[in-house]
Amino acid sequence: MTTIDANSPAPHGHEIDPNKPLYQQYKHGHHFRNAEEEFDACKTGMWLFLATEVLLFAGLFMAYTYFRFKYPEAFANGSQYLDWRWGALNTVILLISSYTAAMAVRNAQLNQQAKLRLNLVITIFCGLLFIAIKFIFEYLPKWSQGKRPGSLFSYPFSHDAWEPMWWSVYYSATAIHALHVVIGAGLLAWCLRRSLKKAYGPTHYTMVENSALYWHLVDLIWIFLFPLLYLIH
């Protein structure tokens, strides 16, 4: 974090000039030729990390494929218990938040500080809304009815012996995704906090860019999870 988003923008004993925005005082790491090179390296590093994230979810999608192939009836039945309207609403929320995240990057590039803060706030709010909907309208009622994963399953009206397996896949996939939403919102909250001090601007917005990339990945995963979980029959 020291190079891409240092709390102290002027290392090596330089004083911070209170009259200039922080981003203008940012000094790139000494091991980079210039800020441009540092930005590219950070971003490529982020993409490598995103690749590992994709592979993490690839395992979950694989589990989904395997068990749906093996127990299609359990998956069709299980999917009936999900209300597609909540799924669709959450999809719309995440898409809008992805748009505002992309706009936030643009605002940073163009030094639109107020808009940057606004877009970050909207994005974080959408993330929290997503989590709230997920928990209040999906996890809690289902869990209390006994629609639980694996051996915790105790729903008395299931139609198929393999429904616990469906719920295992459902909970693992959506809960790991939800965890990513929380982490992404945390990253953006950090950006918001720093942007209050004008830490991001045209010459330095690496943290905003990378947090937004992470957020888009979360959106990307949900784009696949939504139809695969909610729209089966």
Binding site: N111, P202, T203
Partner: peptide
């Protein structure tokens, strides 16, 4: 107009 003059 942004940048430190070092790149595109």
């Amino acid at each position: 107009h942004h940048g430190d003059g070092s790149g595109h």
